[in-house]
């Protein structure tokens, strides 16, 4: 396999984590809007979603940090 192909596959797998984070965020925003429409525990929904969204974004961020710093320093070494 070419280095380029490997890199692209790696990027795709990494993007799954971002897809997860983004879809969780989107889902929570949707739930909060539904809660608001139906006048059903908006504050609780909002606070829960803020906590959860943060967690997923940090996790995706950490993984991306590892990925990009490994690749960056990989090039430097050569």
């Amino acid at each position: 396999m070419k280095d380029r192909t490997v890199y692209i596959i790696q990027l795709i797998t990494l993007s799954f984590n971002w897809i997860l984070a983004v879809s969780v965020t989107w889902w929570f925003i949707h739930l909060v809007t539904v809660a608001d429409e139906l006048n059903d525990t908006q504050t609780a929904s909002l606070s829960i979603s803020i906590v959860a969204i943060t967690v997923f974004w940090i996790l995706a961020g950490v993984l991306s940090y590892v990925f990009f710093s490994l690749h960056k320093h990989d090039e430097e070494a050569e």
Partner: peptide, 26 residues
Amino acid sequence: ILAWGYKGTPKQKHALERAINILMVM
């Protein structure tokens, strides 16, 4: 694919350790 181009350079090691530290606290 899974190795993410890891070669064991000190900088890579440092980045990895930092990530592990963040993760274990989280």
